[in-house]
């Protein structure tokens, strides 16, 4: 069968309607059929990456349009490679296009967060307490907040390891994007979140014991991490 009759060329940004099974089969095929599927998939990934750029444009107003387009292209390139490497992991729990989109959104999101923090210092010491200043707070509320923050600072000193403290300060207090911190500490997002999770659990336990927080029944449940 002539490939062109099955997968006629479409304009950039459009993809042919395929079933999920047809997507996987075409990507595993050889020759022109696979080339067409790759082309269609790339168009789909580029569309998703540009979608992400548009969602974040307000936060990236200082970045030139050409650079943003480069980021979208790189995200689509990297997503395509990831998808081809993980094609065997697609189990059909969602439509293939939804599964593929998430790779492009991940790549675009990571690149945009890193671009947004390019040249910015990552604060690893807890001088970010001012983030909790509330201009509308009453004197009593300010006193209560300050007491809570002092209790948190004491708990951080008392129960966290140096690495847990560094990760908690950066991610929770300074709100550094997790991908940015992962790149600077040369680790993975999953490993950092595990550290953050452990730090949070230790701090919560300490603050509950000190009477600053109520115990949460959900903590008794099995953690899925």
């Amino acid at each position: 069968m002539g490939t062109a009759a099955v997968y006629p060329r479409v304009r950039m940004g459009e993809t042919l309607p395929r079933s999920s099974e047809a997507w996987v089969a075409a990507l595993r095929a050889e020759g022109a059929e696979r080339e067409q599927a790759l082309s269609d998939l790339y168009a789909l990934l580029l569309r998703a990456a540009r979608f992400e750029l548009r969602r974040r444009r307000a936060a990236l107003s200082h970045v030139r349009g050409e650079e943003l387009e480069d980021i979208a292209t790189q995200a689509a390139d990297d997503a395509l490679l990831a998808i081809l490497a993980k094609l065997d992991q697609y189990r059909g729990a969602s439509r293939f296009t939804t599964w593929a989109y998430k790779f492009a959104l991940l790549e675009a999101g990571v690149k945009l967060r890193r671009r947004g923090w390019q040249g910015r210092e990552v604060v690893l010491e807890p001088d970010a307490w001012s983030a909790f200043a509330d201009r509308g707070a009453s004197a009593q509320q300010t006193l209560e907040r300050d007491e809570l923050l002092r209790a948190l600072a004491a708990a951080m000193d008392g129960v966290l390891t140096p690495h847990q403290r560094t990760v908690f300060v950066a991610l929770a207090l300074s709100q550094v994007p997790i991908d940015v911190l992962a790149e600077r500490l040369q680790t993975t997002r999953g490993a950092l979140y595990k550290t953050l999770h452990d730090a949070r659990r230790k701090l919560r336990r300490e603050l509950v014991a000190a009477g600053y927080l109520e115990d949460q029944p959900a903590k008794a449940g099995e953690d899925k991490r």
């Binding site: 909790f132 953050l196 999770h197 919560r204 600053y212 927080l213 949460q216 449940g221 991490r225």
Partner: peptide, 14 residues
């Protein structure tokens, strides 16, 4: 404000 810093209390995936 501690609640946001300390994250969800329910079991969570990574």
């Amino acid at each position: 404000p501690l609640e946001r810093l300390l994250g969800p209390t329910a079991p969570e995936v990574g």
